[in-house]
Nucleic acid binder design. Structure first.
Lengths: 176, 176
DNA sequence: TCATGATAAATGCATATGCAATTGTTGTAA
DNA sequence: TTACAACAATTGCATATGCATTTATCATGA
C-alpha cells in the first residue's frame, strides 16, 4: 500500500522534505504549547512574538510579521492583546508617524525568564539521538532553505508587480 | 542588538531549531499554495489530505488526522468538503460501524497527477544549494525528531491518564 | 508644490480552527 | 448478559485567521 520508491506518480512522504518539516514543526509547537505555554496562558503565536522581540529588539509590526511568519493583520490584533496584558508596548517611531515600534516590557521579559530555559531543554528533547555534527548541518541546511524560499518569494513578487504595471498600461490612465 | 551567543537569558533564534523549522515550514506552505494550489482552488490542508490518502491508501479519519497533523474535528469538516467536491469518498468500514474509511477518488487522483510533479520540483527548489549527503542527513534527522516528539507525546498522555485515574479514585465511584 | 503612488497599520468580514460536548458504536469485566 | 469505559466521528460555539479594504502617513517626480 505504501508508495514504491521509484513510482513517479506518487509521493513517498517519508522522504518528502516539506512533509517531514511540517510534521516536526507542528509536533514541536503542540507539545511546547501544552507543556510550557498553556500554564502561562500564552499561545504559541504570542510566544513567538515575545521571543523575537527579546532576541532582535524592538521592531515595526511589518518586520515582526516577517520574523514570526504571522500575517500582518493577525499580528496587529495579537499585539493589541499583548499590550492589554502588559507584556509589550507600542512606541511611536522616531522616524515616521505611520509606523509603530513594538517593544517588550518588564513583565514580558519576566515571562521569558521562566520560559527560555524550558525552550532550551525542548531543543535538546527534539534533537535527542541526532549526532551534534548532523544537528549543525541540519541548522545550516534549514537556514539555506529559508533563504531559497525568500529569494523565490521576491522573484514572484517582482513578477506580480510587473503584471500589475502591464495591466495599468493597457487600461486608460485614470485619475481620481 | 542581536543576542550574544553565550547569553543564557536570550534565545539566539538563528540557531534555535524549533524556530528554524517553523520558519521554513511556513514559507514552503505559503509559496506552494500561491504557486500551485491556488489555481486548483485547493488549500494546503486539502493537499495534505489528498497526498496522504494517495501515498498511504484509504484511512480512518483519526489516523488521517495523525498523518496530516490536522485536528480531528477540523478534519471531519474538511473531508465533508472534499466529498462534496468529488475528490474523496467516505466508505463504511468493514470491521466497525463507528469508523469510516476515507479514500481518494478518480477526480482526486487526476488532481494529484497534475500537482505531484510540481511538488517534486518544489522539493528541489527548497533544497537548492544543500549537498545531497547533507540533505539525506537532514531527512533522517527530521524523522528522528518526529519520533522523539511522538514518544514524548505518548509519555505525557500516559501521565494524563494516570492523573485522571487518581482523581477518579479519590472521588466516590458514581454510576449514571 | 502637490498630485500620485507606495507604505504601515488597523479594520470589516467571511471562513477556518480547536476545544468541549454529544452521538453512536465497540470492547470488556463483573 | 449487561453496565460501563473506551473509542470514532460529528457538532456547538467561541475565537483565530487571512484576505480585501480603509485610514493615515510618507516619498516621488512632473
Amino acid at each position: 500500500m505504501a508508495a514504491p520508491v521509484n513510482d513517479k506518480s506518487h509521493l513517498d512522504l517519508e522522504r518528502y522534505l516539506p512533509y517531514l518539516i511540517h510534521r516536526v514543526g507542528t509536533a514541536i509547537a503542540e507539545a511546547f504549547t501544552a507543556d510550557a505555554l498553556a500554564a502561562q496562558r500564552l499561545s504559541i503565536a504570542m510566544w513567538r512574538v515575545l521571543v523575537v522581540l527579546d532576541s532582535n529588539g524592538a521592531q515595526r509590526q511589518i518586520d515582526l510579521a516577517r520574523l514570526t511568519s504571522i500575517d500582518v493583520s493577525t499580528l496587529s490584533r495579537l499585539i493589541s492583546r499583548l499590550v492589554r496584558l502588559g507584556l509589550v508596548a507600542r512606541i511611536r517611531s522616531k522616524t515616521s508617524n505611520r509606523e509603530v515600534m513594538v517593544g517588550i516590557k518588564a513583565k514580558g521579559r519576566a515571562l521569558l525568564d521562566r520560559l527560555i530555559p524550558r525552550a532550551r531543554s525542548y531543543e535538546v528533547l527534539v534533537g535527542a539521538g541526532v549526532p551534534a555534527a548532523d544537528l549543525a548541518r541540519v541548522k545550516t541546511a534549514l537556514r539555506r532553505m529559508y533563504a531559497n524560499m525568500a529569494a523565490h518569494d521576491a522573484k514572484q513578487a517582482g513578477r506580480k508587480r510587473a503584471m500589475k504595471a502591464r495591466a495599468a498600461a493597457r487600461s486608460p490612465a485614470r485619475h481620481r
